[in-house]
Measured scan of single mutants.
Amino acid sequence: MQIFVKTLTGKTITLEVEPSDTIENVKAKIQDKEGIPPDQQRLIFAGKQLEDGRTLSDYNIQKDSTLHLVLR
């Protein structure tokens, strides 16, 4: 499925993911596309910070959802 990741600069990254993918996995995909190390990434969805060990389906993230990427 496709999800979107919006950065603070207003750029939107499109990712191909599975509901069973972990947040860690998603961060690795963002690193592949953007070169941002996962340890600098914070992903936010519906006002919640997403934890590495959980999956997209744990957070009820569905296709065409938009996550927000904050760098630390």
Rank of each mutant, 00 (worst) to 15 (best):
I23S: 02
Q62F: 10
Q49M: 09
L15R: 00
K63Y: 13
F45K: 02
G35Q: 10
L8K: 12
V17G: 02
I23W: 01
D58F: 04
L67D: 01
E16D: 07
I23P: 15
P38R: 05
G35R: 09
K33E: 02
T14I: 10
T66I: 04
L15I: 10
L15G: 00
L71W: 08
D52G: 12
H68T: 05
I3M: 05
E51R: 08
P37H: 09
Q2Y: 05
V26K: 00
H68K: 02
P37L: 10
L69Y: 02
D58V: 09
Q49W: 14
K63P: 08
G35A: 10
E18P: 07
I13W: 07
L71V: 03
F45R: 03
I30R: 00
M1I: 07
K27Q: 03
I3D: 00
K29N: 13
R42L: 10
V5D: 00
Y59N: 14
T22L: 06
E34Y: 08
I30A: 02
T9N: 03
V17N: 02
V5T: 02
T7K: 03
D58H: 15
K63D: 02
K27F: 12
S20T: 12
K27Y: 14
D52P: 09
M1N: 08
Q40L: 03
G47Y: 12
L8N: 12
V5L: 13
F45S: 12
I36V: 09
R42P: 01
K11G: 05
A28K: 07
L15W: 01
D64F: 05
M1P: 02
I44W: 14
T12E: 03
G10Q: 15
D64R: 10
I30P: 00
T9Q: 06
K27H: 02
H68A: 02
F45W: 08
D52S: 10
L50H: 00
T22I: 02
V5E: 00
L67N: 01
N25Q: 12
I13Y: 09
P19Y: 04
I23R: 01
E34N: 14
E51F: 06
T7V: 09
R54V: 13
S57I: 08
I23N: 02
A28H: 05
D21I: 07
I23L: 15
D32V: 10
D58T: 14
T22H: 14
I23A: 10
Q49K: 07
P38M: 15
Q49R: 08
I44Q: 04
F4T: 04
F4H: 03
A46I: 13
Q62M: 11
E24R: 10
A28Q: 03
E18S: 12
A28V: 15
S20M: 12
D39T: 10
E16G: 09
S57D: 05
L56N: 01
T14E: 14
T22V: 08
L43A: 01
D52F: 06
N25T: 14
E24P: 08
Y59T: 02
E24V: 11
E16H: 11
T7W: 12
D58W: 06
M1S: 06
I61S: 01
M1G: 09
I44V: 08
K11E: 08
E16R: 15
Q49L: 11
E51M: 09
Q40G: 06
K11I: 07
T66Q: 11
